[in-house]
Simulated assay, not measured.
Amino acid sequence: MTDQPVLVDRADAVATVTLNRPDRRNALTVEVKEALVTALAGIAEDTDVRAVVLTGSGSAFCVGQDLGEHADALEEDPATAFDTVVQHYTPIVTALATMPKPVVAAVNGTCVGAGLGFALACDLRVFAAGATLGTAFTAIGLTCDSGLASTLPRAVGEARARELVLLGRNFTPEEAVTWGIAGQVVPVDDVAATAAETAARLAAGPTLAYAESKRLLAVGLDRSLADTLGEEAVAQARCGASQDHAGAVTAFLNRERPTFAGE
């Protein structure tokens, strides 16, 4: 496998982004993070890509920050050691959560710290049975980053999120799904194929509607009902003016399967 820190593979309308430091369980160095920022930005703008898979190479999805590099940054200048949060984690999570196409996390193994933040920023998740999940931050005297202070309580509720962050205990995919972190749990050997199948299904779907839905759902809990109704009306009108919608209505009336071109 190539030694590039992040791999991007395009197959039909699906782009698969792979963190590629298997020997270090895909721990995040500056090189990896910068490559991931660049890869996600390019994919977000690529109109030929209609769905995305994010995964890790080897036995882990991502174990979060590379602590060896972090220790060197602290020794060099503690005042700038955490600039990476704004420079890298923020744009990565923002890209995953807001790009106008669905993103599937193929969690093939250990997923902790920023890795968990990345997985929760994706729209859908496929978990390897037996994978280790966790927040990890308090174990090294830190607090949340990579969006976990928002995505985790939204998924599992505030009380459970406090427990997972403050106690820092690891948990299983089966527990995660029970608590509300939606996702499929499959044997580890089936993760890649299941995620690819899910992404292909999404890529064949109404991507304009997916983009509007992502935008509405991202802020739905923070808006009043009146504001939500107003935003839904605007978004529905945009979708309603699309060729995808017109074609799907015609197909339905003709008892045919609709096709979607993202137009």
Rank of each mutant, 00 (worst) to 15 (best):
C239Y: 14
D46N: 12
A95W: 03
G141P: 07
T98C: 02
V6Y: 10
A235L: 05
A237T: 12
G247K: 15
V249R: 13
G220Q: 14
P206H: 08
A248V: 10
R238S: 08
L216W: 14
P187Y: 00
A233W: 09
G183E: 06
G117Y: 00
Q236T: 13
T143C: 01
V14H: 08
T228W: 13
T178I: 02
G42P: 05
T38A: 13
A209T: 02
G113A: 10
V126T: 00
A131G: 05
N20A: 10
T98Y: 00
V165R: 07
K214R: 15
T98A: 05
T94D: 12
G147P: 05
A261C: 05
N20R: 05
E256H: 14
S57L: 01
K214Q: 15
V14R: 11
T228H: 13
F260P: 06
A204R: 15
R125A: 11
T259S: 13
D190N: 04
A11K: 15
C239A: 14
R255N: 06
V107E: 01
F82P: 03
E45V: 05
L28R: 08
N170D: 10
D66I: 01
E69F: 04
D46K: 09
F137L: 02
A114E: 10
R162I: 01
L229H: 10
A182Q: 15
T110C: 07
A81Y: 14
E45W: 06
F137M: 06
L124Q: 08
D227W: 03
S59G: 06
V53G: 07
A106W: 00
G58T: 08
Q4A: 15
Q243H: 09
T29I: 00
T250A: 12
L142D: 12
C239G: 12
A233E: 15
V126A: 00
Q236E: 15
A211Q: 09
V219A: 12
F82R: 11
G141T: 03
T2Q: 14
A11I: 12
Q87C: 00
A149E: 07
N254I: 01
F61E: 08
D145G: 05
D227Q: 13
L225W: 11
T94G: 11
T80Y: 10
G64E: 07
A192Y: 13
T178G: 09
G115H: 06
Q184M: 07
V32R: 10
D72I: 04
E256R: 15
V186K: 02
L225S: 10
D189A: 15
R215P: 00
